[in-house]
């Protein structure tokens, strides 16, 4: 079910601006990889290139190669819509569809792609909500608007929505930055459970969070404003946080911790 991502020598541009330069890394299947680094270092930008979401922004394009197992995500024959169906994404701010009920939100990805069978949908909705640890809280009000849930519940709803289309990989762009500590904890628990089924990549500003949830951590940095962001190093999380290879990684981590 989960797949490995291999990135080699990736540059990301927005128009003429080079946002990220020369990233090569491997994201291991059935594990959590965290991206950390200062604001503007390109970690979110890079994350979006993993399911071609950067193409939604005018002028966004990449050079280099991203492989999902043996599939080239940027092959000319590859349709970005198919890529995104396989590699799901959870965003910084919970964004349930405001016109839809809880049920409809989870079923949205399937329905919008043409699945009509009520039984199939019921099954997947229940399974996804259970998978997102939300089922018990909402099972009695599935027809209520999704926007009526609390922030943390909304984010778990968005995760349920993302896993309902049964992706191989789940990308999370600072999924807890808009949430309170208790909701954050719930999401972190959920990430721990999800990694047995999915390859998970999470961007976070919170280093304790990276230390808590991830198996491997990648540190991004940029030399100066206006310069492209780069991958400084990627390694086992314990190694990055205790004994990183690069001085700048250590500075960043200790600066935050100290």
């Amino acid at each position: 079910m989960a797949k490995r991502i291999d990135v080699s020598d990736l540059n990301v541009y927005y128009g003429a601006f080079k946002a990220v330069e020369g990233v090569s890394m491997t994201v291991e299947p059935r594990s959590v990889t965290a991206f950390i680094g200062p604001s503007g270092c390109g970690k979110s930008t890079f994350l979006r290139t993993l399911n071609r979401m950067h193409e939604v922004i005018p002028g966004g394009r990449v050079e280099g190669k991203v492989m999902l197992d043996d599939q080239d995500l940027y092959a000319p024959s590859m349709d970005p819509v198919m890529v995104r169906r396989t590699i799901g994404m959870v965003f910084q701010r919970p964004n349930p569809f405001p016109t839809m009920s809880i049920y409809d939100n989870v079923a949205a990805g399937l329905r919008l792609n043409g699945v009509r069978n009520k039984k199939t949908l019921d099954g997947i909705v229940e399974q996804s909500l259970k998978g997102a640890n939300l089922w018990n809280e909402v099972k009695d009000r599935l027809s209520k608007p999704g926007a009526g849930l609390s922030g943390g519940q909304q984010q778990r709803l968005c995760i349920a929505r993302a896993i309902a289309v049964q992706p191989q990989v789940l990308l999370m762009d600072e999924p807890c930055s808009a949430l309170d500590p208790i909701s954050t904890l719930a999401i972190e628990d959920l990430i721990n459970e999800l990694k047995s089924d999915y390859t998970i990549v999470i961007v976070t500003h919170n280093m304790q969070q990276a230390a808590r949830v991830s198996d491997r951590t990648a540190f991004f940095n940029l030399k100066a404003t206006g310069e492209p962001g780069r991958l400084i190093e990627i390694d086992e999380t314990t190694k990055i946080f205790n004994n990183p290879n690069e001085q700048s990684t250590e500075d960043y981590i200790s600066g935050r911790f100290g």
Binding site: M53, R85, N95, N113
Partner: peptide
């Protein structure tokens, strides 16, 4: 974006 990310 949410819809695109679902492969819609």
């Amino acid at each position: 974006e949410a819809a695109y990310a679902l492969g819609v």
